[in-house]
């Protein structure tokens, strides 16, 4: 799909004020909520900012793959989605459901199912990866909901926050290879500049999330 075509749909989203107030740092594709009765079969670091995970589903040869690529901001991710879709052979991609991502595109009927979307500063893709087609929409919706959600339970502490003129820095006191940082600052246009989180206005909550372990949080008010 040519990027000028996808950008026609993406540009209005970029032009909107970016106030979602969500930034994700260090996210890995295998950190998404697991499909029931599935087994994580493969985890790949495709590039420094890009990962892929593959799950075997319980039935037949069905598999699902998720790729996650991290950018510095939602705008950067939106522009990059157009570049990524250039690597799709299909001449056009229909829009995906409006409740998935800031914007989404998906494969049409009759083509192995896949959806491509942006949430926060991530581009995400969910593919039916095996011989048997899988409905990937429920999977994509769960991933998107998980990314948007404020963790239900989080222990205060464990994340050190410092502010300086360059912005906010969040340092988990300890971190595993699968952990990531989620910054929630409603109404803010968040972005990364080096190791600083820029753009937070008002209150910001920072969570350190590692699948299978306790989530830690810290709060700061500008």
């Amino acid at each position: 799909m040519r990027s000028d075509e996808s950008m026609r749909a993406i540009e209005p989203v970029i032009a909107k004020p970016a106030e979602a107030g969500l930034l994700v740092i260090g996210f890995k594709a295998w950190a998404v909520p697991e499909e029931r009765e599935s087994a994580l079969a493969m985890r790949e670091q495709l590039a420094p900012n890009s990962t892929r995970a593959v799950w075997d589903l319980r039935y037949g040869q069905a598999r699902v793959a998720v790729t996650a690529t991290e950018y510095t901001s939602v705008r950067h991710a939106l522009k990059s989605l157009a570049d990524e879709l250039e690597q799709n052979q299909l001449a056009t991609l229909p829009p995906g459901p409006s409740d998935v991502g800031e914007i989404s595109f998906m494969h049409p009927d009759g083509v192995p199912p896949a959806i491509f979307f942006v949430r926060a500063n991530l581009t995400l893709a969910v593919f039916s990866f095996g011989r048997e087609p899988v409905d990937i929409l429920p999977f994509a919706r769960r991933i998107d909901a998980e990314l948007r959600a404020r963790p239900k339970e989080a222990r205060d502490g464990g994340v050190e926050l410092t502010y300086d003129e360059r912005g906010l820095r969040a340092s988990p006191r300890w971190s595993g290879p699968d952990g990531y940082v989620k910054v929630l600052a409603p109404g803010s246009d968040l972005r990364k500049e080096g190791d600083a989180i820029v753009g937070a206005t008002g209150e910001a909550e920072v969570f350190y999330i590692e699948p299978g372990r306790e989530t830690y949080s810290a709060k700061v008010k500008r």
């Binding site: 079969a41 493969m42 892929r52 075997d56 040869q61 593919f127 990866f129 095996g130």
Partner: peptide, 14 residues
């Protein structure tokens, strides 16, 4: 990655 997938389960490519 391709070589790894060749030795594993089902996968897709274009």
């Amino acid at each position: 990655s391709y070589l790894t997938h060749l030795g594993g389960g089902a996968f897709v490519m274009n």
